[in-house]
Design a protein around this nucleic acid. Structure first.
Lengths: 335, 335
DNA sequence: GAATATAATGTAAACGTTTACATTTAAACT
DNA sequence: AGTTTAAATGTAAACGTTTACATTATATTC
């Protein structure tokens, strides 16, 4: 038999109001009665219905997490850090990875307009018009993570893609004196990719190296595309001395292609990646890459979001988390 | 201004009941009015409040997923397959990885007793008394995934740990004629680990190889412990010819230790793992391991759970998903 | 000990839907 | 046209809490 607040009240000989108060430990209720109610609650194994509570309080104490389709290795850490941070505060996490471009929008609308969650963390590195409008129209607080677009008043956290890429290229140039540096780009319209590309260009410019279109090829962040792109780059008359893959997965693809064609990394060509996925530590030679503070991304997103929801802090964050080079042997450093 | 069903009803000149019916497309409402209401709903961007709906219908259309603390690599695929399957049916997913032993129980109780979700998928490979009782007491449907314990009437899906381990050992013995086969065990009380150990023992017995306690060492599924265990095994007077690590992570640790002590895999000692994590493909030599159908695990869990919730199928599933050997070079096979 | 302030409890109206039941409207028979 | 039957809509009571407001019990003051 389902037991509800009325049953508890009846057994305790009080009204449901005091039971409710006792459970939300209001100071209005006398210690004795509070204790008595506590006891009965335990005896009956009563658990307040969170749905009813949500309806009444107009808040669900759950946050929605909307993730892109592309499931990278680091997602797990991201979700885990979110869950952990939320759990600490007794909040719940509703996840929803968008299964296509189309439904990211739908998901977002439903989530933000329905009251199912009190706020959302959105990660949408792929450019998508419409998102911005949805967000500005809705009253539901949002934190954007690694998301591209033009957002006036909403908080954003991202990693320093530009700096990471810049540093890699600078390392190539300053330490190893490479001049012909190729890049395997991420997917078009992906802002992480674009920022990394910008970092690449900027570093070249800084060191007065002319941008060479034949050294710029496209990939889409998966292993296969890295493999293809690497092959393309290395089949040209003038081979690059070094290749920057815009993420580690594509660097993995590069390693595979290299193995197939017996190209030695780094003696024939240096390689670097971005993300520092776990796997990158086990490539031989170990991949030089950019370490990304993914856990921090998650926990900060939760913190800012809850502050916003609780009106504790209304300021608009725009935070760019620093990244750091993780030097392996693939760039030519001895390691 | 928040818009609710009353506003829609008002504007449409009908009662809220017909609006509700129209939206749940009952055949009771006349096509004309249904269309009219549809139109207004869109004009006003009305989204029914799922919380209120849940309260009224006594069902939330969300499933809870409770995961162990230990975050393996395959985790992401598991969540993703669940999310995908749920999304297809317009269900939502609430995730909650347990952050400690203690709170797995708490989480479970709250989740199952509160009505926040209509069913849960529980993955609890670590033995834990209490779980069984909670589940049998609660009316909330559950599907157990890779969970150990004694459960009478609840559906379970697991992977064939026993067979996987057995096959690996059999491969060692039949193909490579190894006789001294060591094992790096998973954590005590972990049923995946225990079943794999049982498979190991059974294969030895089948081939009349006496179990040698000095060849059995403990690990706890992480890289570090694999490293330590491998070292222990190889520092004995009689070294094993082959080592079966109960999961890939520990096999990775074995590789690391091997590198450090310049032990060659597989010529000095063969190695095999279990799980087929992505990384295992990139170890040199490639790791011989057991491939696990993790996506299938997730999607089947959802299917069975929803069937149960919808009373479509009340039968108790007990399904053991087959695994398959994934032969690399680490066992001694040329590859 | 009455009057007043304060602490503790109770009553009832929200919160936004769904749905059994009652009612009206329309269609189908004589 | 008048019944009878079926289709479409409306009314109001759930669902299980929280909380403003009203009320009662208790402590404090004179």
């Amino acid at each position: 038999m389902k037991i509800d607040i009325h049953k508890v009240a009846l057994k305790a000989g009080v009204s449901i109001a005091t039971v409710s108060r006792a459970l939300n430990n209001s100071e209005l209720v006398k210690p004795d009665t509070k204790a008595k109610i506590q006891k009965i609650v335990e005896d009956l194994n009563y658990i307040p219905n969170p749905i009813a509570r949500s309806l009444s309080k107009q808040s669900t104490e759950t946050i929605g997490v909307v993730l892109p389709d592309l499931v990278g290795e680091f997602f797990m850490d991201f979700i885990h850090s979110i869950d952990e941070e939320a759990y600490k505060r007794n909040w719940h996490v509703l996840i929803s990875s968008s299964h296509s471009q189309r439904n990211l929008i739908e998901t977002l609308i439903e989530l933000m307009g329905s009251g199912r969650v009190d706020g959302v963390i959105l990660m949408a590195p792929q450019i998508q018009d419409g998102i911005s409008k949805i967000i500005s129209k809705s009253k539901t607080p949002v934190i954007l993570v690694n998301t591209c677009g033009d957002f006036n008043g909403t908080s954003q956290i991202k990693i320093d893609n530009f700096k990471g890429a810049y540093d890699i290229i600078e390392h190539f140039i300053e330490i190893h004196k490479y001049k012909k540096i190729g890049i395997i780009n991420g997917p078009k319209g992906n802002c992480d990719a674009e920022e990394r590309f910008a970092g690449y260009l900027s570093a070249l410019k800084k060191y007065k190296i002319k941008k060479d279109p034949s050294l710029i090829v496209n990939g889409n962040f998966d292993v296969e595309s890295g493999c293809v792109a690497f092959t393309t780059l290395m089949n040209q008359k003038i081979r690059p001395e070094a290749i920057f893959a815009a993420n580690d997965m594509m660097a993995v693809g590069a390693y595979e292609a290299a193995k197939e064609f017996s190209i030695k990394i780094p003696s024939d060509v240096a390689v670097a990646g971005f993300d520092d996925i776990y796997l990158s530590n086990f490539l031989v030679p170990r991949l030089t890459t950019v370490r990304v503070p993914i856990m921090e991304l998650g926990s900060k997103a939760v913190k800012y979001l809850l502050d916003k929801i609780n009106k504790k802090n209304n300021k608009v964050h725009f935070e760019v988390l620093p990244v750091e080079l993780d030097i392996g042997g693939s760039c030519g450093c001895k390691y």
